[in-house]
């Protein structure tokens, strides 16, 4: 695959289990810096498990295990002595359902992660909150309502608030797990537009079961089926001329 992008993150022979049940089988994907990589596949194919392995969230599930490597800037995040909390700071995550902290204001939702790292309220924190909300395309909509609860805004705004919360920690990679599946088309279009602008600064990996969304937003697309990587290529190639028959059948809806 030819690409001008350099690699930011990759999985090498990544396998994952929930107890005895294997969810991922030897998955190797190279995610390019400043690009959007989409992970597609039918329900239960392992796409959410895959991205949860990319910031060591998979191991938070009881009896969940991982083998293989995940490289972030060529260093294995599962290597000895690596602090998973630091990894989760460098590799942020946005979930399917908007989940702002319900008791916190909009401001505090964005500032929460930084406060946990010891940052005090002040101008620099204000600046980061503003910058994060701006990057999430939300500042103009909430700048006079920063003290209102995070849950008082619409679902689409809540999801952008969660993106701002992730951005505030200044991550290098942003993982999104079906970020639009609970949103209406207008809110979805805003998040998709946001992905395109976020990749200028971050590396974005998005799990989606909406293939049209993958074709719209992603530079690269990986198709997983039954925990295995079936095909990974530039998005235009996957959606115009996939190499694998299984990919063709899935994206054209010819699956039984």
């Amino acid at each position: 695959m030819q690409s001008n992008h350099t690699e930011k993150m990759s999985s090498l022979g990544l396998s994952a289990w929930y107890g005895e049940k294997q969810a991922l089988v030897n998955v190797s994907i190279s995610m390019k810096a400043n690009s959007v990589t989409a992970i597609i596949g039918p329900s239960g194919c392992g796409k959410s498990t895959y991205i949860r392995c990319l910031n060591r969230m998979h191991e938070l599930v009881p009896k969940a295990t991982v083998t293989g490597q995940v490289l972030l800037d060529k260093e294995d995040i599962y290597g000895p002595g690596v602090d998973p909390v630091m990894i989760r700071r460098r590799v942020g995550m946005v979930f399917q359902k908007p989940n702002p902290f319900p008791t916190m204001s909009i401001y505090d939702n964005v500032a929460a992660g930084l406060k946990l790292t010891g940052m005090r309220r002040g101008k620099s924190l204000d600046d980061i909150v503003k910058s994060s909300l701006e990057q999430a395309g939300l500042w103009d909509e909430v700048k006079y309502d920063l003290k209102k609860p995070g849950t008082s805004v619409s679902g689409g705004q809540q999801q952008r608030l969660c993106i701002a919360r992730a951005i505030a920690l200044q991550p290098e990679v942003i993982l999104m797990d079906e970020p639009c599946s609970a949103l209406d088309p207008v809110a979805t279009a805003k998040i998709e537009g946001l992905m395109a602008s976020l990749k200028e600064k971050y590396t974005v990996v998005v799990v989606t079961h909406n293939m049209q969304q993958a074709s719209r937003v992603a530079d690269f697309t990986a198709f997983l089926y039954l925990g295995k990587l079936i095909e990974y290529d530039e998005t235009t190639k996957i959606f115009e001329n996939p190499k694998e028959d299984l990919t063709e059948r899935y994206i054209t809806g010819k699956f039984g």
Partner: peptide
């Protein structure tokens, strides 16, 4: 239908 792959071609 936003066709892809063989359908799009």
């Amino acid at each position: 239908y936003q066709p892809v792959a063989t359908d799009l071609r």
